[in-house]
């Protein structure tokens, strides 16, 4: 266990389960949420090290979730999953703490590599 906590938010239960399992198997502590509102509440309470969120979710979209987190506390670094196939405006992503966009369908193996890269990078930035 590497001690890092990751919150995964997706309204597709299959995706939520498979991503959680991949991250748990890699030693992360994983929290899950099935919509944006639930994710916001858990994030504010648990302050995870990383957020992996779907873009299209009920109640609160992935982007809105990141923006609310930015308002309520300092932004939590995030990886955005999207099935829409479009990119967000770089200004929106930068302001909301979104570090990477990952298109669905994705490889869990590559997602794990991205998570490790992002956490490594953020650690360096935080230390600097």
């Amino acid at each position: 266990m590497n001690g890092k906590t990751i919150l995964v938010a997706d309204d597709e239960s299959h995706i939520l389960n498979v991503v959680s399992l991949k991250l748990r198997n890699a030693g992360f502590r994983v929290l899950t949420a099935a919509d944006g509102q639930e994710a916001l509440e858990i994030a504010l309470q648990e302050r995870p090290d990383l957020l992996i969120t779907d873009y299209h979710m009920p109640l609160l979209s992935g982007l809105e979730l990141c923006q609310r987190l930015r308002q309520e506390c300092s932004a939590i670094p995030a990886i955005m999953l999207t099935a829409r196939g479009y990119n967000l405006e770089p200004e929106d992503t930068a302001r909301s703490g979104i570090l990477k966009m990952v298109s669905k369908p994705f490889s869990p193996r590559q997602l794990l590599a991205t998570v490790q890269e992002v956490l490594g990078e953020t650690a360096v930035v935080a230390a600097g």
């Binding site: 597709e12 299959h14 995706i15 498979v18 099935a83 829409r84 196939g85 479009y86 369908p105 994705f106």
Partner: peptide
């Protein structure tokens, strides 16, 4: 855009579970 979203969603599950 919607067709793309709707097709990608089940495809994402299939690909991820097969790889696992």
């Amino acid at each position: 855009s919607m067709v793309s979203h709707e097709l990608r969603t089940p495809l994402a599950s299939i690909r991820a579970y097969v790889e696992m």
